[in-house]
Structure formats: structure tokens, C-alpha cells
């Protein structure tokens, strides 16, 4: 529901990541990492970004979204596993004391500029 705001932030970060000396830069691809626990719908983000990117150096850029799995680690037995459904106890020892190692990402990894 807040994908428009997120798209605006993405645009802002992409704009500031284009080296200032590259005056005619065309961004071809934006590589995003989005955790599976992040409250983002990739198709909505793509739609909003298209609207925001109009008439910018990244108007034709592909938003490449890498989904990051939710990986947890048990504080008691150190077991690491990938969480698939909404269950957050250790699959080895049943402990509820766990840390989420990945899956909340919402970050821009890189941008690719046309040569």
C-alpha cells in the first residue's frame, strides 16, 4: 500500500547514485533485494516505479527484484533454517528464541548504466 512512497525513495537513491560526470547516463537496470518478510508487493512497486521514472535517466530501467528468503537462527541450538510459512520456532529443538538473519531486506544493491 505504500509502494508509491517506496518507489519515490528508490528513484531518489538511483538519481544520487549516477556519477555526476555521466551527463547522458541511461540506467538500464536497477537491482533490488527484497526480503520475503518485507511488506512490499513487487508488481505494485514496478507499476509505481514506472510512473515515477517517466522522463528521467532511468525511465527505461528494468527493476530487477531478487527475493531474499527468510532465514532464522536458533539462539539455543544454533540451528539455521529457511522459514517458508508463518511459524517462527526452531525446527530442530522447538525453541522460540530465534533471530531472523535475513528476509527483511529492502535495498538497492546496484544500478547498471548503458555503455
Amino acid at each position: 500500500m505504500h509502494e508509491m512512497g517506496i518507489a519515490m525513495q528508490v528513484a531518489e537513491i538511483v538519481r544520487s547514485s549516477i556519477p555526476p560526470d555521466m551527463t547522458d547516463a541511461r540506467v538500464e537496470r536497477i537491482n533490488l533485494r527484497v526480503g520475503r518478510l518485507a511488506a512490499i508487493v513487487p508488481s505494485s512497486l514496478r507499476f509505481c516505479f514506472e510512473v515515477i521514472a517517466k522522463d528521467t535517466p532511468f525511465s527505461d530501467a528494468v527493476l530487477n527484484i531478487e527475493e531474499v528468503p527468510v532465514v532464522a537462527k536458533c539462539n539455543d541450538c544454533q540451528h539455521e533454517w529457511t522459514i517458508e510459512g508463518p511459524a517462527f520456532s526452531c525446527t530442530a529443538c522447538k525453541s522460540g528464541s530465534i533471530v531472523i538473519m535475513s528476509g527483511r531486506e529492502l535495498e538497492i544493491a546496484s544500478i547498471e548504466i548503458a555503455d
Binding site: I6, Q9, V10, E12, I13, V14, S17, I18, P19, L32, L106, E107, I108, A109, S110, I111, E112, I113, D115
Partner: peptide, 13 residues
């Protein structure tokens, strides 16, 4: 040319 960015989208917030 790929430019590494590695920034959280919600950095400002």
C-alpha cells in the same frame, strides 16, 4: 557498467 549502491530504501526514514 554496474555501479554498486547497497543502500536501504528506507534509509531516510
Amino acid at each position: 557498467m554496474e555501479i554498486k549502491v547497497v543502500r536501504k530504501v528506507l534509509d531516510a526514514n
